[in-house]
């Protein structure tokens, strides 16, 4: 499947075709039209980036400067490091990071492994009831979160998991979409390779680990990136099951910070910058995989 970002690399032959097509239109539109187009794009980009620029600017200002009447994008003094230190002293950001790292790492590793196992099972084995079970998995794919949130809360409550990080981990270990995505990719693994491993005497788990997983690495990476980002950013579910201060995740901590110290705009924005840094870094590093993932999915970004 050709997708948004990979097109940059894949479209060399196609690029000529585009040139040929667009030439009459482009010369007809003329240089003025092109200038107008870029002007609109620049304005649009400014609107898209302004909130983030405003965020960095506020995070770097001294507190008095955040409430002055005049518009000042460039801070008089650059105090981002100082504001960060103050934010980390005001609320236990390090604790929030620790909790988020534990939850996100566990969910990401667990989800990739369990979805890969189930995807492999549905793609490459035959047993009675397989198709029925796969249909059951698919049927849960389109269920909106708010339909299950109350009974899910009750399950977690009855298990005694409220105010326990386990409540953020276990329900997220498998998603129907993850199983579906990896099954589609596992179907593409040649069965001959799997059989060859068996003939060489490899056990079934070993075949899975040494043959199947390496061959489906791109799909595993895509699922891992998505899981990482959505788990790190998750707010609603943690809001319901975690109330203890020392168990807050980064989004919960940021929201709590906002509610308690709303007037410390500079520290708030500095904390928010650090809070979004992990997902932003992952996005920058894996931009191509991420955008590909978006286009072959429907999961929220």
């Amino acid at each position: 499947m050709s997708t948004a970002v990979s097109a940059d690399r894949d479209s060399e032959p196609a690029a000529n075709a585009v040139d040929r097509q667009e030439k009459p239109a482009a010369s007809g539109r003329g240089i003025l039209g092109k200038a107008a187009l870029y002007a609109v794009l620049l304005l649009g980009s400014a609107i898209m980036l302004l909130p983030l620029i405003w965020m960095v600017s506020t995070a770097s200002k001294p507190i008095e400067e955040t409430i002055i009447p005049e518009f000042r994008l460039i801070p008089g003094e650059f105090l981002l490091p100082e504001n960060l230190v103050k934010a980390f002293q005001r609320v236990p950001m390090i604790l929030y990071f620790r909790n988020s790292v534990i939850v996100t790492a566990a969910v990401t590793a667990g989800r990739v492994l369990l979805c890969a196992l189930a995807g492999y099972s549905f793609a490459k084995f035959t047993y009675r009831g397989r198709d029925l079970l796969f249909a059951l998995v698919l049927s849960t794919m389109m269920i909106p979160f708010y339909v299950v949130v109350i009974p899910l809360y009750i399950v977690v409550y009855q298990l005694g998991w409220l105010n326990n990080l386990i409540a953020l981990i276990v329900p997220g270990l498998v998603t129907a979409f993850g199983v579906f995505l990896l099954r589609q990719f596992m179907m593409g693994v040649p069965s001959e390779l799997i059989d060859a491993a068996r003939i060489d005497g490899a056990s079934e788990p070993r075949t899975f680990l040494t043959i199947v997983l390496p061959l489906t690495k791109p799909a595993l990476v895509t699922l891992a990136i998505f899981t990482f980002m959505s788990t790190w950013d998750d707010y609603v579910w943690p809001l319901l099951v975690i109330t203890r201060q020392d168990l807050l995740t980064v989004p919960l901590g940021l929201a709590a910070f906002t509610q308690e110290y709303i007037t410390y705009y500079n520290e708030l924005m500095a904390a928010a910058l650090i809070g979004m840094a992990p997902t932003f870094l992952v996005f920058l590093i894996f931009q191509r995989e991420f955008v590909e993932g978006v286009s072959l999915s429907g999961i929220k970004g």
């Binding site: 369990l114 492999y120 099972s121 397989r130 079970l133 849960t140 498998v174």
Partner: peptide
């Protein structure tokens, strides 16, 4: 084995 691979995911779902 194949069925066993799907069991953890199925139980959680």
């Amino acid at each position: 084995w194949g069925f066993a691979f799907a069991v953890p995911a199925l139980l959680l779902l």
